[in-house]
Simulated assay, not measured.
Amino acid sequence: MAPYLLTAGVSLLAKSFSVLSCTGSLARCTSVLPSAFFSPVKCLTSEARSPPKRPLNGYMRYVQQQKPIVARQNPEIKAVDLIKTIAQQWRSMSPEQKQPFQEASLRAREQFKVDLERYQAQLTPAQLQQQAQEKRQRRAKRKAIRKKRELTNLGKPKRPRSPFNIFMSEHFEEAKGITSQAKMKSLLEDWRNLFSHQKKVYTQLAEDDKIRYKNEMKSWEDHMVEIGREDLIREQTLSIKKRAAKAKKVTKKAKTVKKATGTSKPSKKTTKSRSAKTVSPPSTKKT
């Protein structure tokens, strides 16, 4: 047993000496090689740092300051009521009380401009172009959301539903699956397995919904014309209205011109009597 322990100890000691010699050689190599070889993260990351965040305005700075204070004073207050309370406090403050928050916002805005210029200076043309495209997409998305909200507030009718949408709304509660996505997948499979006469019921309901949408849209667009919001009317409706108005205008103009000149088409009886008077039979004199 003793020779075995002696042999194991010698081998362990030899391994430790080999490790120490390797680390010593590595240390000697690091003293010769430049430091860039031992900072691969800094050397290989060519991506620009994240863009600076936009600064908060004076009101939002006040909200951030007052949130923990109001929440501590009212532990059971809801988040919506908390914001309402802080907003009421801000409205009741004097300009002198608001001034520190607004000045801090101005200073942060100036610093943001400097940081943004510094950030954009290190971007490549491709990255700048990508940022501009993303900015346009975000602006278009915000514009679409605002327009949809405005149309909802103005009472625009909901679009007609498809046969499958009507089927899904009727059977969504008892559909298989836990998540909404799983339920929709199950309902889609059930819809595909329906017979044609079963689908016909939902197809007829969808056709009725189209008629409902058409009538409601006509009334809504007429109301939009009355309140001066022609910009919200569909293009096809505008083109139909323009053609009708143009035809009406042309007809009215033609009637005015005809009345001014006093020319009108003679009736059939008048033309027949005139032709009978002008054309006389040849005279037959006896010699």
Rank of each mutant, 00 (worst) to 15 (best):
Y202L: 03
R136Q: 15
R159N: 07
K285V: 01
Q181R: 15
R91W: 03
M60V: 11
R229V: 04
Y59C: 03
N165R: 04
L20G: 03
E174T: 08
K242Y: 05
K199T: 11
R72S: 11
C29Y: 14
R139W: 03
R54E: 15
P100G: 10
Q111C: 12
E207A: 12
K148P: 07
Y213M: 10
V70L: 11
V19T: 09
A206S: 15
G177T: 03
K255N: 11
T261K: 15
K286A: 06
A27Y: 02
K141S: 07
T203Q: 15
Q99L: 01
K241L: 09
N74Y: 12
A27S: 04
L20Y: 06
Y62M: 12
K286Y: 01
A245P: 02
R138M: 13
Q64L: 11
N165A: 09
I69D: 00
M1D: 05
K218M: 00
T256W: 02
R61T: 12
D208F: 04
L5I: 12
D81Y: 00
C43K: 02
S169T: 08
S35M: 05
L187I: 02
S169K: 15
L13G: 14
I211M: 07
E170K: 13
Y202Q: 03
P282V: 09
T152K: 09
Q65P: 08
A87P: 07
P125C: 04
T287R: 11
F101E: 04
G58Q: 04
K135S: 06
V250D: 14
F167A: 03
K147I: 06
G177D: 03
P52N: 13
A182Y: 08
I178H: 09
L82H: 05
E230F: 00
K185E: 14
E96V: 08
D81K: 07
K113L: 10
K242D: 08
V32H: 01
L82Q: 08
L5Y: 15
V80W: 01
E103G: 00
P51W: 13
F17R: 11
I166H: 08
R107M: 10
E226G: 04
K42I: 03
S31T: 02
K53A: 15
G262K: 12
G24T: 06
A140G: 00
K148A: 14
A254M: 10
F38E: 00
R138A: 15
K277T: 03
S283Q: 10
K98T: 04
A276M: 11
T45A: 14
T7C: 05
